[in-house]
Deep mutational scan, measured.
Amino acid sequence: EPEARKIVEKLINNGLSPEDVKRWAEKNNNPEVKKAAEEYQKR
Rank of each mutant, 00 (worst) to 15 (best):
N14R: 13
A4I: 07
K22N: 06
N28Y: 11
P2L: 15
A25P: 04
E26C: 05
K27F: 09
K22Q: 10
N14I: 13
R43H: 12
V8M: 10
K42Y: 08
K22E: 10
K22A: 09
N29Y: 06
P18V: 15
P31K: 07
N29V: 05
W24H: 05
N13P: 01
E39Q: 07
K10Q: 14
P18C: 11
E32S: 11
A25S: 02
P2T: 15
L11H: 03
V8L: 13
E26Q: 03
R43W: 14
R43N: 14
I7V: 08
I12N: 00
K42I: 08
N29M: 08
I7A: 03
K22H: 07
S17T: 14
L16K: 05
K10S: 12
N29L: 07
W24V: 04
R43Q: 14
K34S: 10
S17W: 03
V33E: 01
E32F: 08
A25W: 04
E9L: 06
S17M: 04
E1I: 13
G15C: 07
K22I: 15
K10C: 14
N28D: 06
R43S: 14
V33R: 00
R5I: 12
E1T: 13
E26S: 01
R23P: 00
G15D: 02
E3R: 09
E32I: 08
A25V: 00
G15F: 03
I7T: 06
E1R: 12
R23V: 07
A25R: 00
K27P: 01
R43G: 12
L11P: 00
P31V: 10
K34D: 03
N30V: 11
V21R: 00
D20I: 04
E38D: 10
A4W: 11
P18D: 03
K34F: 14
Y40P: 03
A37L: 14
Q41Y: 09
E38S: 03
N14M: 15
W24F: 04
N13C: 13
E9T: 08
S17F: 03
E26F: 00
Q41N: 07
S17Q: 05
L16G: 02
I7Q: 05
K6D: 10
I12K: 02
V33A: 05
E1F: 13
E32H: 10
G15Y: 02
R43I: 14
K6F: 07
A36V: 12
N13L: 13
N30S: 10
E38V: 06
V8D: 00
A25I: 02
G15S: 02
K27H: 11
R43F: 13
N30H: 13
